[in-house]
Amino acid sequence: MPTVTENRTGGGAVKPPIERTNPPNSRKTSGNHWWKRFQSSRTLVLLMLPGLAYFLLFHYGAFVGNVVAFKEYVPFDGLWASPWVGVENFSRMFGDADFWHATWNTLAIALLQLVFFFPVPLAIALLLHSLTSDLLRRFVQSVVYLPHFLSWVIVVALFQQVLGSTGLLNSVLGDAGLHSVDIIGNPDAYKPLVVAQVVWKDAGWGTIIFLAALMQVDEQSYEAAAIDGAGPWRRFWHVTLPSIRPVVVLLLIMRLGDVLSVGFEQMLLQRPTVGPAAGEILDTFVFWQGLVGGDTGYAAAAGLFKGVVGAALVFAANKVAHRLGEQGIYK
């Protein structure tokens, strides 16, 4: 108590008295014994409770519901009274051609995204970074970030209105006396279309992390390279690329670990326009089997399978990163 009044009036001489008296004191009260620690931080524990309750209920509580994957769900009986069926749902799933087809579509779209989406943000970031006008750069940044904040409903609607059979592109082509192109609703064009949508929506936003990495590159390394006679291209190759490599590797790993998720909302919205043969991915398979078809246990099995494989992939990708001497997502 005396220290408090002393500090209030004392002004400048705040630090020494604190360091002498308080840290040992606070360590004693909030030290090893859990009850003491609880006592000294009970306001904070109280503040933690709503959030903790949310995670326990809607993540861990919901997670328990995965037992339905080993049951035959009867809505009238509810989750707990429904009969157990062992791994029947899983064995049925492994023999289901539709399931494997959905898996194949998922992987194909993920691969296309990796090849055609992944480099775009890097390219745009390099372009933006090379602009000498701050004003122009900020303006272009603002514009290309924007689509990220639109919902998938709006993005899909925009694409349908621009590329659809009666859309903008085709009316322009028609006016020019050219053949119309069949993009929306054409199963063959579906995979390129969904990748194009992801590029339109998120390529601009994806630049944010590359731009941050480019800002961190030491200006002096460029200068030294230039003085040693390196042209723009060699400076890019020997200075820029090595400097941003950790970020690129990190993003690649995250993408590989998440390879079974290729945009549930986007695919769900457009599956009806092309049908399941072209448009079904693992997530929409779960949705259609379970929430539309009512085959709850079976759908949960497919969802659980996806979750387990997904977690294993994250682990594996992280291991690979450590092997390569990169940081990875966690240590």
């Binding site: 904070l44 524990v45 993540h59 919901a62 519901g65 989750l79 997530d283 379970g290 997904g310």
Partner: peptide, 29 residues
């Protein structure tokens, strides 16, 4: 620092990132 239970709670939360509960269980809940 030194909040009672903070470390396990943080681990608990970060783990949900790795393993989301899934669409069907969430719906049933």
């Amino acid at each position: 620092p030194k909040v009672f239970g903070a470390k396990p709670v943080l681990m608990l939360i970060l783990f949900t990132f790795l393993f989301p509960p899934g669409m069907i269980p969430a719906f049933l809940l």
